[in-house]
Every structure is written in C-alpha cells, then in structure tokens.
Design a protein around this nucleic acid. Structure first.
Lengths: 192, 192
DNA sequence: CTCGTTTGCCAACACTTGTTGGCAAACCAT
DNA sequence: ATGGTTTGCCAACAAGTGTTGGCAAACGAG
C-alpha cells in the first residue's frame, strides 16, 4: 500500500538532484538538468517535490553518523573524528551539495550550522575541560574539518588533493584533539 | 589625458560589483543590481567591462599583501600570519567575493589556488624543515585559514562568530605554526 | 471489462538573465 | 559656434529559468 509504482522515479530524481547540487551548487543545478539525468520530465520533479527549494531540502538531508565515541580513549577522539569525517565526506556527496549551497543560501547555511552544533557539540561537551567552552571547541573543530574539505574537495588545492588520507589524518588529528581537550595558550593572545 | 571623465563611473561600478559579489556570490549578483547600486544603467557595465565574467575578474583582483616576515622570529610566524589574515579579511570584501564564487566557478577557484600557492608557498618554503614539504605545508595553512574564514564570515557558525579576534589568534596560531615548522606525528598515521 | 486513479509528457506561462544597438545629451578641442 | 567624441539611457532581444495545467496512456480495484 505504501509502496507506490512511482517510488523508483522519486528515488531517481533525488539521486540526480543530489549529484547535480553537489557538483554545480544550488543555482547552477537546474530542474531541467536534474530531470534529464533522471530520465524524466521536469514537471514530475515539481509534482513530487513541490518546488526547487523543497527538492534541495530533501536532497540535502544529511547526518554525520558519528559513531559512539564513549569508549574511545580521551586522547584518541581527535584522530577518530578526523578519520570518520574524511570517510563520510568521500562516500556521500550530500555534504558537498550542502557546502556548495550553504555559501549562498541561508537555509543551507542554517542546516550546516545545526549539523555541526548538534553533532560535534555533544562530543565537545563531554571532552572540554571547561563545559562553558564546549560550543567554542565544537566551532574550532568545524573550522579545521570544513576548511580541509573545502580545500580538498571544492577548491581542489593541489597539495591538499594530493595528500594521502592517512597523512591528512596525521596532520589534522593533533589539531582537532587540541581544540577538543587542549588549553588556550594565552601567550598568543597579547600583542608584543 | 589618462584621466577620463568616466573614471568615477568605472570605480562606482567596481565598488558595487565587489559588494554584490561578496554578499550574493557570482550567480545571484546580477548586472542589473550592480548597476542600480552604482546608480548607472546596466548597459554601461557592459561597455566598460565587456561582460559579467570580466567584471568579476576585475572586481576579484586580490592580493593577500603579506608583510615581509623575513625578520619575524621563526616561532612567531604562525601568529603573525593568522593576525594578518584576519585583518585582511575584515577590511577587504574581495576575499569574500572570491570565496563565495570559487565554490561554483572554476575560474575563481583557480585564482584562489594561485593566491595561496603563490603567497603562502614562499613562506612555507623558507620555514619548512624539509623543502620538499613546502607546498603541502602551505596547503595545510590554507585549510585552517580558509576554514576559519568560511565558518566565521560565510556560514556564520555562532561560536566562531562570537570569538574575539585575539582568542582566534590564540587558538589558530599554534596550529598554523605547527603546519609550517612542526614534524608529522607518524603515531596518527597507522590504524590501531 | 469498467472506471477512477496514478504516472508521465507536452506546451506554454511569466519572469529574469546577460547582452546589444541606437539615440540624445554633455563635453571639448578648434 | 562647430564637429567629433564621450557618456549615458532606453528599449529590446534571445535564451534560460522555475512553474503550471491539461491531456493521454498505463494501471489496478470492483
């Protein structure tokens, strides 16, 4: 009963939309192109998803799917996070669609904010020496992870693209670890 | 002789273009809107800049203007870089225009690449323990600096927006410093 | 089979986009 | 003043956009 004959079409549209949004961003990804990829008429997209914004909302539904790090040793959480993030990015183009769009569409930016606050926030809350710093620490982690993804997958800076995954893990893990559990070095916070 | 009467108009168009590209990105910034901001007819934009791409190229002309860090102590270069980058970003919207556009336009991405390779590369080349790692280290610095800018100015993650400039410097300086002069910790590069 | 429902396509809409050509006013050297 | 050049605006174009309504074929319960 719940299985309609059009479910395959719906899924094809969604898959094509994710791909187009990921490679072209929201504006350049046209309904017509998405429909063509899904081998369907553009009007079907509207019938099944209402409008372009709603289609994007459906296509950009994303979960970091962070594993439970409860039993990971405190000083290894950074590495685990970096590794998971890198894998997640590589096998799901949704994050790419989200980032490419979040830069110019407020709704997508808001989703990005809620993903990072909602999923990295709790981890930071558990690890931060001072609970009041949890949000700040989650933000710091986001800057490094998103910066890496931006440079590697979107801007494609050659040295960042060429870097083997494990070397990236080696470089970024200590950074993320420090953002989560380290202390602020006040030495740097005063002009000299 | 070289000072034409239309130079003021040209400048007004360029200023309006920079602003629109910075806040809206390339696609959403329309020639008509830019012309309206400059209180000029859209056709003038075309006459003076040829087409939209060329206008963007002119508006997105950017230089990091890194100071000569030759006499900065080796272990303070990270802090100096972070501070300079933050200031540069705050008082020149060109970088914002560039980033918002580089995410979907290859030409802008290429310009971003050349800016970071050409301006951070030499610094990394001078500081890197191993000259062969210079490009990689410059790329690492780019991930953290661009990631910070992305989260603070574009995505506007609340904790990153709220962070005082000097606290940001305190957090990011050690990271950048390590990317420039630190050693890779192989401990993190093996699964356990 | 029969008839209402679902699925799909076609054609068109209203609108916005970058871009162009022509025309009038302002300018400026002679 | 005169003639050519510069500056600006208007109106329009061609192309592409999201979106809509209607119509035909396929489907599926009775």
């Amino acid at each position: 009963m719940t299985a309609r004959r059009s479910d395959a079409t719906r899924a094809a549209i969604l898959a094509a939309a994710r791909e187009r949004f990921a490679t072209d961003g929201f504006e350049r990804a046209t309904i017509r192109a998405i429909a063509a990829d899904a081998r369907i008429d553009p009007s079907m997209v509207m019938r099944y998803y209402g409008n372009k914004e709603a289609l994007f909302a459906a296509a950009a539904d994303f979960d970091l799917r962070l594993p439970d790090l409860g039993d990971t040793p405190r000083d290894e959480v950074g590495a685990a996070l970096v590794r998971h993030f890198l894998e997640r990015w590589e096998d799901d183009e949704t994050l790419m669609a989200l980032l490419r769009t979040a830069v110019t569409k407020e709704a997508a930016a808001e989703r990005m904010r809620s993903i990072f606050a909602g999923q990295i926030g709790p981890i930071a809350a558990r690890l931060s020496p001072d609970p009041a710093q949890a949000a700040t620490r989650a933000g710091l982690v986001a800057t490094q992870m998103l910066g890496f993804a931006l440079c590697r997958f979107v801007l494609r800076l050659p040295p960042v693209v060429a870097m083997p995954a494990e070397e990236a893990v080696a470089w970024f893990s200590p950074t993320v670890q420090r953002y989560l559990t380290g202390e602020v070095d006040l030495y740097f916070s005063h002009d000299r």
